[in-house]
Design a protein around this nucleic acid. Sequence first.
RNA 1: GGGCGUGUAGCUCAAUGGCAGAGCAGUGGCCUUUUAAGCCAUUGGUUGAGAGUUCGAGCCUCUCCACGCUCACCA
Length: 503
Amino acid sequence: MERTELERIRIEKIERLRAAGIEPYPTRANPTHTVAQAVQAFEAAEAAASADPVQVTVAGRLRSLRPMGKVAFGHIEDSTGKLQLFMRINEIGEEALKQFAELYDLGDFVEAAGSMMRTRTGEISVHVSRVTMLAKAITPLPAAKDEVVDGVLVRHAQLSDPETRYRQRYADLAVNPDVREVFRKRAAITRALRDFFDGRGFLEVETPILQPIYGGAAAQPFTTHHNQLHQDLYLRISFELYLKRLLVGMLDRVYEIGRDFRNEGVSFKHNPEFTQLEFYWAYADYEKVMALVEEMLVYVCDTVLGTRQFEYDGTIINMDLPFKRLRMRDGILEKTGIDIYAHPTAESLAEAMRAKNIPVKPGAQRGKLVDALLSEFLEPELIQPTFLYDYPRDISPLAKSKLEDPSIVERFEIYVGGMELGNAFTELNDPLDQEQRFLEMGRAFASDDEERHPLDEDYLQAMSYGMPPTGGFGMGMERLCMLLTNRPNIREVLLFPHLREEK
RNA sequence: GGGCGUGUAGCUCAAUGGCAGAGCAGUGGCCUUUUAAGCCAUUGGUUGAGAGUUCGAGCCUCUCCACGCUCACCA
């Protein structure tokens, strides 16, 4: 491995430490307090006016280092916060102070033992009696320095190059506490969702990621191969078809939180692998699902944020109930003046669009045209939480038709912040209708091998045993995390977002 | 895949086509309550890679690479 000059200097320091009989990578650490606990213990003792010194041993990274001759200051940081170290030659001795000044660097993991105190300026600190190297850092962390100006923390020279931040997320996390906070929040969101569903009688399940036939969404899969079985397999693009099999098997309420893989373009809201939440609820329909989704999102906001209002991309999102409900037809009519119900064929709709100077892709199906109107004119406007409902049948092959109009299905999508957050239907449970839909899809895409989906006969087999009337829902977890952490880019809520290979 | 933009020291950034710089970090000193500590001195560059134009290229042209934004794609 090639080393920079800065790294070579630190490797020399490792040798100097060893020469002085100090192991730079000792096997054990013995902290008695986290930084937060140490501060808390000291504040409690202060409040009680206790004369007994609070003895602590804290461990963490050195984040600042200010040797000043016969005294030295520094800050140590662990996952709970930062704490100042104060050492004097009187307590730790000439040799140790010299070693600290010469051989310790920013980024090193160290352990410091001493008693808690306040400095003259009032900062809570450890008056260090012993400092120990826990792990010497060779590569300097991107230097960020904090300054408090009028009580506001200003960070200088913060690591901000997006490529470095994503490729070396460990460095990003190490120097940017707000990035750590994003992923803590992400974990809290996942936990809140589990609590929500567990508390309502839903069973958490895990279904295959390696699938012999992919389905449940319109996306290209990643393919792989099982050598022993001589079998091609796909990484799942959705778990829908497996979860609904479970309803046939009398598991009435199931949910899964897991990874999906889609071999599609990468964008600010798409990553080749992403986490999805899906739930299926027997004896429910899309209206009940709508109510549950509202409850679910509000629960997550209350639990994770403690508020139903938050800022996203410069606007305040208000998650107070009830969310707006907008029939897709009405939304498109309002934004474009086109009534999709008045245009039952692709030709007629395309004509109406051309009349409004809206570009039409030649040969597009009616459903695709509706989808184009939706994403172009409606989606960006749906900032406040909105249920958009009743979709065309031909873009919804797994959703149940409305009894009064078979060309419309009971389906909704929820939009927040101009983004599709989730998708739901009253699930199609008529095995004959389902087979018909699959055959139609097959025909529609027969000319286009890329988009053609294989027919899942086993799924039809499951349906034909009987599936209860069911409502189902799927949501991109990253999208929700983006909203609740105010990060309008999916890479900011993925620990290791996909990047092109470095050359 | 298309369009636009960016790439300079470990980090954040400067530099009319004319000696490649600053702050922080680093190194050597001074300093017993500092906190972007301070003061003195100082190291560090294949300017993403390659080619071209030019007396001379970080800067202009071309190719390539990576990243960002955007469009396309995305039941």
